[in-house]
């Protein structure tokens, strides 16, 4: 797959956006506007944005209006930037900017690169939130343009990884290695999911794998139930119906085990 240079992306070129969230405060430093691109190569069973997975617009029940609405708008770079620019003052005050998220935003590489360039032209920094699953050439070309990267690592056991995400681990690890050695500031995050990867033994497994790639610091993200209602709205089954949300306190032992194996960990609120 070749990646066209951003400058070559025509202004009319559209990306599939499923949400733009202003005053986003959990997606990188400062006050940010988070642009969620639709489409994801993973199918994490606990995904809190199930409407983000498909690569086409889809119907979803909107409880607020009591009607079904289409999730996913084809938008131009200018259209996205028009929203992003509304809060430029807030970014400047807080050290914030734009965040690209998903889905997996790298699934739309040309559009992502065009957004990054457009933001940079306005002196707006760009954070990328990624699963790390992309062709290495795509991954590296985008990472090199970003100001900060937040990359998830979901499991350490390749077999189990396929089971819970329906995606293979090795490519993700290859990209993780690239990121760790790149000049782009970054953080690796582990979403800690009950029954999937939340035991102290799991922590040990993560530590072994991460240190092998020279990664010695992670952020732990406790499982939450924000996405629960969406499965019903999409008329899709959800396997985590009865799993309790985790609190930072629940992850104390997990963190200790990581740390005793050479990986420092913070827990996000």
């Amino acid at each position: 797959m070749t990646v066209s240079r951003a400058a070559e992306a025509s202004p009319e070129e559209k990306g599939l956006v499923f949400d733009i969230q202003r005053f986003s405060i959990h997606d990188g430093p400062g006050i940010r506007t988070c642009v969620f691109l639709k489409g994801c190569p993973l199918r994490c069973a606990w995904c809190s944005n199930p409407e983000s997975q498909g690569r086409q617009p889809e119907l979803m029940w909107d409880r607020r209006s009591g009607r079904s609405t289409t999730v996913g708008d084809w938008m131009t770079v200018d259209e996205v930037m028009a929203v992003v620019l509304r809060d430029k003052d807030y970014y400047e005050h807080s050290g914030g900017g734009m965040t690209l998220s998903g889905g997996e935003f790298m699934i739309q590489p040309e559009f992502s690169l065009a957004l990054i360039e457009a933001a940079h032209r306005q002196q707006i920094t760009v954070v990328g939130e990624t699963s790390g699953l992309a062709q290495p050439a795509v991954f590296s070309s985008i990472v090199d343009q970003l100001d900060f990267v937040m990359m998830d690592v979901k499991h350490y056991d390749p077999m189990r990884h396929v089971e819970v995400t329906r995606a293979r681990l090795p490519l993700i690890l290859q990209n993780a290695a690239y990121l760790e050695n790149s000049r782009t500031p970054h953080v690796f995050r582990i979403p800690v999911i009950p029954g999937v990867n939340d035991t102290p033994d799991d922590a040990e497994g993560f530590a072994e794998m991460l240190t092998e790639y020279g990664i010695t610091a992670v952020e732990l993200v406790p499982f939450h139930q924000y996405g629960k209602g969406k499965y019903a709205d999409l008329d899709r089954p959800y396997g985590f119906e009865d799993s309790p949300s985790l609190t930072p306190e629940d992850l104390t032992e997990f963190r200790s085990r990581l740390e005793s194996h050479g990986v420092t960990a913070s827990i996000s609120d």
Binding site: F23, I25, G30, I31, E92, H93, S94, G96, D269
Partner: peptide
């Protein structure tokens, strides 16, 4: 209370505007 620096930035920017 937990995101105080961001809330402060929010207020500061609003007042500056």
């Amino acid at each position: 209370n937990h995101q105080r620096p961001k809330v402060k930035s929010l207020f500061d920017t609003y007042f500056d505007r």
